[in-house]
Design a protein around this nucleic acid. Structure first.
Lengths: 391, 391
DNA sequence: CATGTTTGTTAGTAAACCTTACGAACGAAA
DNA sequence: TTTCGTTCGTAAGGTTTACTAACAAACATG
């Protein structure tokens, strides 16, 4: 045989096969493919799904009957458009049959929880003050909030998604979360045991970037900067979240910015990003400047200067990341009154001036449209992805 | 049904299914799995492969007979170890049946080519001076070198791998390579047409990082910095190369370092990484300092200072990337007399001092062991991956 | 009212892996 | 020397999957 006759691999599908594949895995893949297609577009007939997925009508029918048996898909009557041929039976995900429970543990003092629809809409929400609880007390507070939210659900719960600050591994163990006083806290396993529901625990910034991807119309490569009590990042490359070898990807709060020192940080270093950009630092600086200002105009100018400098610092630290990953889309999440103005303008300006113009010409930086629910919705995406393969 | 009864997906296998799967895809996956297992470990029996892959002996036998029919696998007699039972028939990839042709176009003035074995060993190599050729003339030079190397092969050629400087897209079109005077040069398609062989063209730094991964024992997450006439990076996350949305990932040469200006760069900005770190800049600076030095000791001290500062600059620009991606392994490729000493020591020191110590404590930075053949071997990895699914 | 089109289903086929069973070849123990 | 248990590779038959082909139902249109 000739060399050119050497076989092509499924390289486009998965770079290297890491496990054997059996016929039943085919079924799972195609089943999920159909579910995903239905989830994204909604209201389609079996024939539509066949055309969209490339499967035959026969196979789609078979998969749909399986999904209907599990109450995941329902028929919604016949299509009304006047067309030749037998009218199509419209299908959709049974969007009201299940609900998702999400918790956001990233608030410095207050934990939030919500019941969400399968579409990611917040149906009801509640909160609980952490009241300085740490360690096991913090866990108890989380469990109490979770019980509250579960009780508020009005349909079977598909699963529980939780966005936690700190370093969270793939098994949902919170390796380190200083604010909650947790080290190696097996939150996912404990809550799964406690509730009997499927639970997924992820880092809050990673949850946020998933929400932006699924509900914010973001592209496959996306960097989300979450500014709050601390500063963290969530990174999506090729539609996949990046976790890092020690699950600490996105932990850029304590990376030093620039070569001219800067404010002292709680971690002991000078000029960390968090020392420039965290909400407490910014509000304190603005407060001080406003108090010292002679006129309202002076105060406004001083405020703008502070935000511009913070934005510039963010741009300085992001420039190498944007260059190395060739990122085109950056999203900011946090208080819009701080981020959405002089700060983000300075960040874009700094990024453009410090990277190759030809590559960053179409770089976009914007605020998230998800508002404060971004972590809750991202945690719901994790549940959808884990339970249905859909997102 | 209950929510917990909702089906699990193949999420661990592939985040979201993007295409239908047919029975024949199973075959391809398992066939590649067997080939890969054999490629990495070598000299195994069918029963060994069955145990290793999880497939049954029956299936492995069937796949092996298919692979033997394509001359990709051969039998090598019976295992000699005294064990109970029927002795095993040892198998291996037919490593001498095919060879790989690689080109490295990243040299500023000289193009290199080589014939490699399936194991990535350089069997013979040759070179051709670019002699200032640009555009179509540069293409002709590449084609001439390729013909030379192909003629030197002593077995059927599995494919041609090429590492090119500049921005290369997934189809092997060189979007922009200033040194060669190429814009939107469809190098892969042209050379494939010309030679009738499968051709893969990738960016030189991306090829290098693949070589380090496959032959250098590197982990799944890896950043390779290639220092030459310019400075580029290749990035591997989860064992997959990162290309970027505009295929410009790793183009960090013209990202500005620090907040204190720096040398003027050819691109017009001040303080670009390339202005600190490229080989021409370093050698010129060292030359000047040596000439100005009063004593050999002064010269040595000045040289060390220059290299230390360059290393510090590299550390400054890598710190945000290392933090954002939680990288633990960085490899340098380039002239060891410049990189392997004060420079890399300063880079590690700077990285440690500018990122979270707890996360970068086990960060390693080292020179590549691949030497100057790194791009050639990486290009060969591309061929192995594309043609056999093996690497 | 006949015709063509579209939908969803039924029946049968091909491909892939699996389980079960078997002969061949070997070491160890009776 | 013979018997037994082990291991290897192969053969036969079964299961799962999706495909092709064919068809009835339901509709629009000329």
């Amino acid at each position: 045989m000739t060399a050119t006759g050497a076989p092509r691999t499924i390289q486009d599908r998965a770079l290297r096969p890491t496990a054997k594949v059996l016929p039943e895995h085919i079924r799972l893949n195609n089943r999920t493919l159909v579910l995903q297609t239905l989830y994204r577009a909604g209201l389609q007939s079996r024939a539509d799904l066949a055309r969209e997925t490339g499967l035959t009508r026969v196979t789609v029918s078979d998969l749909i009957s399986e999904l209907m048996g599990e109450n995941l898909v329902i028929e919604l009557g016949q299509r009304q458009e006047p067309r030749p041929g037998k009218p199509a039976t419209l299908l959709d995900i049974n969007r009201s049959a299940f609900q998702i429970v999400s918790l956001d543990l990233s608030g410095h003092t207050r934990l939030r929880g919500a019941v969400l629809s399968l579409d990611g809409a917040v149906l009801s929400s509640s909160g609980l003050d952490l009241a300085g609880a740490r360690g096991e007390a913090a866990y108890d507070t989380v469990a109490e909030l979770l019980a509250q939210v579960i009780a508020a659900a009005t349909a079977p719960i598909l699963g529980v998604g939780i966005g936690s600050p700190g370093i969270v591994d793939r098994a949902g163990v919170v390796r380190n979360a200083p604010n909650l006083g947790w080290r190696d806290q097996p939150l996912q396993a404990r809550l799964q045991e406690l509730t009997g529901l499927p639970v997924r625990v992820v880092n809050d910034a990673n949850a946020a970037v998933l929400a932006e991807h699924s509900f914010g119309g973001a592209d496959h490569d996306l960097l989300l900067i979450k500014v709050g009590h601390g500063v963290g990042a969530g990174l999506l490359i090729g539609g996949r979240a990046i976790f890092g070898e020690r699950f600490a990807a996105g932990e850029i709060g304590h990376v030093v910015v620039g070569t001219d020192d800067g404010p002292l940080c709680a971690c002991g270093k000078s000029g960390c990003l968090e020392a420039w950009l965290s909400v407490p630092r910014l509000t304190a600086a603005i407060h001080d400047a406003t108090a010292a200002a002679a006129t309202p105009a002076d105060a406004e100018r001083a405020t703008s200067d502070i935000l511009t400098e913070a934005g510039r610092r963010l741009g300085i630290i992001l420039a190498p990341v944007v260059g190395a990953l060739n990122l085109l889309e950056i999203v900011l999440s946090g208080p819009p009154e701080l981020l959405d103005g002089a700060l983000s303008a300075a960040t874009v300006e700094t990024l453009r001036s410090r990277t190759m113009a030809t590559e960053t010409g179409d770089l976009t930086l914007r605020m998230t449209a998800q508002g404060e629910d971004i972590v809750l919705r991202g945690a719901a995406v994790m549940v959808l992805s884990a339970q249905l393969g859909v997102s």
